[in-house]
Nucleic acid binder design. Sequence first.
DNA 1: GGCCAAACCTAAAGGGTTTAGGTTAGGGGC
DNA 2: GCCCCTAACCTAAACCCTTTAGGTTTGGCC
Lengths: 190, 190
Amino acid sequence: MARANLSSVVVIEAAADLADREGFAAVTLSALARHFGVRTASLYTHVRDLSALLDSVHELALGELADRIAVAVAGRSGREALVALADAQRDYARQRPGRWAALQRPAATAPASAARLVALTWAVLRDYRLPDAELVHATRLLGATVNGFLSLEASGNFGHRGPTTDVSWRRAIDALDTALRTWPTEGNPA
Amino acid sequence: MARANLSSVVVIEAAADLADREGFAAVTLSALARHFGVRTASLYTHVRDLSALLDSVHELALGELADRIAVAVAGRSGREALVALADAQRDYARQRPGRWAALQRPAATAPASAARLVALTWAVLRDYRLPDAELVHATRLLGATVNGFLSLEASGNFGHRGPTTDVSWRRAIDALDTALRTWPTEGNPA
DNA sequence: GGCCAAACCTAAAGGGTTTAGGTTAGGGGC
DNA sequence: GCCCCTAACCTAAACCCTTTAGGTTTGGCC
């Protein structure tokens, strides 16, 4: 009987593909074993346990996302870069829903790609010339808005009534751009 | 042996409390049965199945949240109302993390409280005098930002370095307020 | 005092994770 | 060319969770 000749990477990628295909909740060691024509227990040779596997999918996805964002923002600046960054995330979330869901899951380990993503974000925000101390708040706002929008969109919580979410998305990006451009002078600065 | 004398509501509330205490993932029919000193199968008298139970927790939480928001925004308007609405959500998310997690789960049924919440939100947004067609986009932005922020905060994705999230939160609300006040004239309106 | 509905039970099937320990395949050293 | 050692894979079994089917008990009401 030919061996499946698995490895960590192969299993992790299969898990990510399974998540994209049938939903994040469907990624299960049993399902993967079935897919490979192997006994469930055999997967423990390549993977510490289920939670470690899901962490690995998270890491894989984060790396891919960082790659996409890197090429999206390359050569752009200001508002254009902001749009590119946000759109890259939205495209990823739509094209790879399972991988994107894996990103929502709090990961036990902070992968290296996380730092890359922060760096890319800061590069985009640099053109807005915020005070240094405000950079982190702006990053958080950006992350919250984009992730929040994509979560609500994915979970169908925006409802199927009303205009397309595409318009809402543009408005959200516009709002972010405005907020960033007018950052220091907003409201009544306490 | 004294009967536990359960009912749907009792089970649902216990599930919500369990979620707050030990995390949403910990709410399991087995755990609830243990808690009541009853066999798991007996719970099926009061609850259709696990997924229906989780939907009910969702509904319970949404009602509670709507209540809180209603009293929070009562008698306030404009920016003050916006802050009250957002803070009420943040308080709820922090004080009832399990119930709040239940809200993230896409519910099979759209509970009546959802409509109440939309109505409350629209009341808050009314003072910003947006064009009618923009109301839905503004609502989505508000929801996305608040939910996104709270998700990232709860999952620890903001990291434990850097300034408190409290400041970031205030900035986020400020940004929303700015976006709402300057809504029609932003960027280059296509 | 008896009956009936609802509350609770036992039993069992089915799926998932995980550990312990055994077998086999295949490549490197002699 | 054979050995042998390692890693890939296996079986077995324990444990937890959900769900269905069908039986028993309890308590209130007529």
